[in-house]
Write a protein that binds this DNA or RNA. Sequence first.
DNA 1: AATCGAGTTTAGTTTGGCTTAAATTTGGCT
DNA 2: AGCCAAATTTAAGCCAAACTAAACTCGATT
Lengths: 235, 235
Amino acid sequence: MGSAKKLAERAHQEPDLNLNDTALHYLDTIYRLSERHGSASTTEIAAQLGVTPSGASIMLKRLAERGLVQLTPYRGAVLTEHGRRIALRTIRRHRLLEAFLYHVMGFAWHEVDEHAHALETVINERFEDRMDEMLGHPLRCPHGHLIPSKTGEMPVVNDVPLLSLPLHTRSVVRCIDTSRDDWLEYLGAQGLMPGCQLQVVEVAPYNGPVTLRTDAGETISLGRNMAELILVEPL
Amino acid sequence: MGSAKKLAERAHQEPDLNLNDTALHYLDTIYRLSERHGSASTTEIAAQLGVTPSGASIMLKRLAERGLVQLTPYRGAVLTEHGRRIALRTIRRHRLLEAFLYHVMGFAWHEVDEHAHALETVINERFEDRMDEMLGHPLRCPHGHLIPSKTGEMPVVNDVPLLSLPLHTRSVVRCIDTSRDDWLEYLGAQGLMPGCQLQVVEVAPYNGPVTLRTDAGETISLGRNMAELILVEPL
DNA sequence: AATCGAGTTTAGTTTGGCTTAAATTTGGCT
DNA sequence: AGCCAAATTTAAGCCAAACTAAACTCGATT
Ligand SMILES: [Mn+2]
Ligand SMILES: [Mn+2]
Ligand SMILES: [Mn+2]
Ligand SMILES: [Mn+2]
């Protein structure tokens, strides 16, 4: 009985005890917040999802009962292995959707996050697979974030913060690590997106502006906060 | 004040007092059922949506309060003009999605309805417009159903039931009027889909089988119930 | 005219996901 | 050691959308 069910689960790849979009968005959010601090606090999760901390607290307890997150009261949440697999699937769909909306449907790169977010919990596996094929199994979304494989593994890459390199090191932009659509639109208008080659020519002190030169010879000046979002691969 | 709001509504084309997907599916369903009998009964609506009649009854009352349907107790529901516009928008999105899934993404024609149904209440106007452009402003979904325009008008066509024509009249299939995916798969495998040319060569009595000959010279024999779903344009 | 069954509505309850307001825990600071 | 502010959880309640069970309407039939 129990083992028959387990086999079925393994064959289907996802147990997925009827998770609705609310639960999926919680898991997705916890995963992304945990990437930074190792775990996700109730308040952070609540802020991200636009609910009150008390609402998030209640929901976290439910997710813990379902074995999707491990919750230490007053200490924050971590995904269980089961929860992590489901979160990665949602993130895969989100990023594939962004790539699909951008490359196949011609949306602007600052529009795709919002729309991918609405669709990520609605599409099914067939849709996911068709996008993946049509895009040639892409490794990254249009902003450069990594797309996990169907088996839940992240591609291994070597992205480093632009500002961690010595001045004048030539490098290729790999990721613009923000989801603020107004910043994305601005940076895109400057020609700053994954694939573009550049070097840092000056970093003004006291959190002053950062001056970049692209391989096309153009000079771009950015505030420190924006420059910190740029991840590159040195040449 | 009031008139400013009305202007904004007219400019945006849809007032849409925060309708969620439940309400949109009710309106969609009422529209399609009303096409047949002029109005939709509580029980029919409930069956279509997979809820109990009592549940549908309560929901219909709420839609009536919002001015979306006109409800005569014990007599069934009709859409108001406002409700009709919203229903047509959902139907437009459903059929555009079917065409998109079929022509752009390569799904089989018996798969697209289910998936379009899940997506139809999630996509936004930009997505709708992009599909429309990519598909060259199509008039019909892959099954041949008409796609309403953005302004809520149905294309005018001249589809007649295949079985209403005299024997041996040559005609082009325009619509297979069912949403049963198993029937669609079967008919598709016989080569029977919009665009194919054929004539009826025999109609057996007592609800017996219907024999068709395609322009490719093939003979197809169908039960009456399936043959009745075929709409054509005589040549 | 009275009755009956199908169709429909109402009453009462449940569930999920949230809210505000009131405890409670925690870690840092005097 | 004791206290405070911030973070967190609990308590109580709201709302949409469903359910089951019971009551009601309608029209058709006797
Ligand atoms: Mn998302
Ligand atoms: Mn992205
Ligand atoms: Mn639909
Ligand atoms: Mn169709």
